[in-house]
Computed example of a mutant assay.
Amino acid sequence: MTAGTLIWVAVVVVVVVAIAAVAYLALRHQRRSRLRERFGPEYERTLAGQENRGAAEQELLAREERVAELDIRPLAPESRQTYAVRWTEVQERFVDAPGFAVTEADQLVTAVMAERGYPIEDFEQRVSDLSVGHGDTLDHYRQAHEISGRVATKKASTEELRQAMVHYRSLFEELLGESPVNDRASRRDAATGRDDQDERTLRRDPGGR
């Protein structure tokens, strides 16, 4: 093989390697963008808890694989209506018994998750599974659950309990829908009419005074 041929072979190898590298970087960027979009704030939270970005993204991909194997399904229309009525009742009970209402809200969210097909035995696993489709509201759930855990010891103020109800409602409304990842802006617009009334209800003094 002549020197000229060797040079051309080397050039071809370099070009192939360069093309492969560009394709790899493009695919990695595409995957990263997809994970950011799907997991929302949970992407950065997972990144902060891992030693590097690669490990964080592998964890998120593993969550996707696990949830893909679950039988996650939308609620039947009648179930969705029943849960919506129950939420209204729980929210109204907040006025007289805020601690009890927050505990009920936690149980109601868990019940909806179970009916939709999410495993509910372990809270951390619940959070992990929910992150795949509900990353935007997952921090609400964490905060609400933390406040709910302080109800029994009466270490949560009325304002904290009110915030817990608001946090639970954020996830509850998503779980009732059939497409939690899509059409977020439309869902927020649809909820606006309820938010003002709900806020007034929760702002009333316990005891109805």
Rank of each mutant, 00 (worst) to 15 (best):
T2Q: 12
T2F: 12
T5C: 10
L6M: 15
I7E: 15
V9Q: 14
V11K: 08
V13G: 06
V13Q: 12
V14M: 13
A20C: 06
L25C: 01
L27G: 04
H29G: 09
R31V: 02
R31K: 04
E37W: 08
G40Y: 01
G40R: 13
E44F: 06
T46A: 04
A48L: 06
Q50P: 01
Q50C: 11
E51S: 12
E51Y: 04
R53W: 02
R53S: 13
L60M: 15
E65R: 14
R66D: 06
A68M: 11
A68L: 11
E69S: 14
L75A: 07
P77D: 10
E78G: 07
Y83M: 06
W87F: 10
T88N: 13
Q91C: 10
Q91P: 02
Q91H: 09
F94N: 03
D96L: 09
P98A: 09
V102P: 04
E104S: 14
E104T: 05
D106E: 14
D106G: 09
L108N: 06
A111Q: 11
A111R: 09
P119A: 04
D122G: 02
R126E: 06
V127E: 03
V127A: 04
L130S: 05
G135H: 11
T137I: 15
D139R: 15
H140V: 05
Y141S: 06
R142D: 11
Q143S: 13
H145L: 11
I147L: 11
G149K: 08
V151F: 07
A152M: 12
K154V: 08
K155L: 10
K155T: 11
K155S: 13
A156M: 03
A156N: 03
T158N: 14
T158M: 10
R162Y: 10
R169W: 02
S170F: 02
E173G: 04
E173Y: 08
L175R: 04
E178F: 08
S179T: 15
P180T: 09
R184I: 03
S186T: 02
S186R: 07
R187T: 00
R188E: 00
T192I: 02
R194A: 08
R194S: 05
D196M: 09
Q197P: 03
E199A: 14
R204L: 13
P206V: 08
G207Y: 07
G207R: 05
